[in-house]
């Protein structure tokens, strides 16, 4: 069966053979000649017969701030898993820029290449201090031998201090990350993302468990990041989404239900039925 499939793949004339493609090269600037920095086409993923993603199509432009909403089980987190290499898609294509096929890369390569991710549950390195958490995430050579003799340069230290201030933890660099409050952990994780200096930030539920004031500051931070970075936010909090979103994608049962401005999306009768209708 698979031999037949492979042979057929060789006969296709609408695409270049896989082995002819150059290996992904993150040293080169990402090819954005056609607009999107992240491009998903017909991506499907099944877990034990359950289709978490069903022919999902999504294109996100460079510098965009995109919000993704959808009811529970719509496939939001699975989508992030597929982009970051944690889960492999059963079919479909996922491209970073025009040339880099993310499905051929493993998690650490994708992370080094410029896609950073914040988890739904804030995940920081609890046994390490705030400073060390950021230092570990710093974009630099992360191979084993190099890290045995790694020293922070003055420039990197400066960047670290800058991010510390940005996430409001400037006074607590020596605090153990495990001792931080929930909101502070969320912020630290965002800071760790920034240290990686990614082109694309995937942010899963950044304001879950935050106070109103913290939520507001997070909204400000994320908005200020767009432009230089591409930010994709998955969130349940509709007020928060409304406050930051320019373009919203609604997922439902693993595929895109609607896409557009918040006003247009929230006026869509299908969206009201599957999602907003639930709340009303």
């Amino acid at each position: 069966m698979s031999l037949l499939k492979d042979t057929r793949a060789l006969m296709r004339r609408d695409q270049v053979f896989d082995f002819m493609l150059p290996p992904p090269d993150f040293e080169q600037p990402v090819d954005l000649s056609h607009g999107p920095i992240l491009y998903l086409e017909d991506v499907s993923v099944s877990f034990d017969g359950f289709r978490a993603l069903n022919r999902l199509n999504l294109a996100v432009d460079a510098g965009e701030l995109r919000c993704i909403i959808g009811p529970n089980g719509a496939g939001k987190t699975t989508m992030m898993d597929v982009i970051t290499g944690k889960t492999r898609a059963d079919e479909g294509q996922i491209y970073f820029g025009q040339r880099i096929d993310l499905q051929k890369l493993s998690e650490y390569q994708i992370a080094r290449g410029g896609i950073g991710r914040k988890f739904q549950k804030p995940t920081v390195f609890e046994a390490l201090t705030v400073f060390e958490n950021l230092e570990l995430s710093l974009a630099s050579d992360k191979s084993t031998w190099v890290s045995l003799g790694f020293q922070l340069s003055a420039q990197q230290k400066e960047r670290l201090d800058y991010v510390l201030g940005l996430i409001g933890l400037g006074a607590l660099p020596t605090r153990l990350a495990g001792a931080l409050s929930h909101g502070q952990k969320q912020w630290l994780e965002i800071g760790m993302l920034l240290m990686q200096n990614p082109m694309v930030l995937l942010v899963d539920e950044p304001v879950a468990g935050m106070t109103a004031e913290e939520t507001e500051r997070t909204a400000e931070l994320l908005t200020s990041l767009s432009g230089r970075h591409t930010v994709i936010v998955v969130e349940h909090d509709m007020a928060f989404v409304r406050s930051i979103a320019r373009r919203v994608t609604v997922l439902h049962q693993g595929s895109v239900l609607a896409e557009g401005s918040m006003d247009r999306v929230s006026g869509d009768p299908r969206v009201i039925e599957v999602y907003l209708g639930e709340e009303a």
Partner: peptide, 13 residues
């Protein structure tokens, strides 16, 4: 030890 998959997404093999 504490968060293996987070370490992966920080770019460590």
């Amino acid at each position: 030890r504490d968060a293996e998959s987070r370490t992966r997404f920080a770019g460590y093999q």
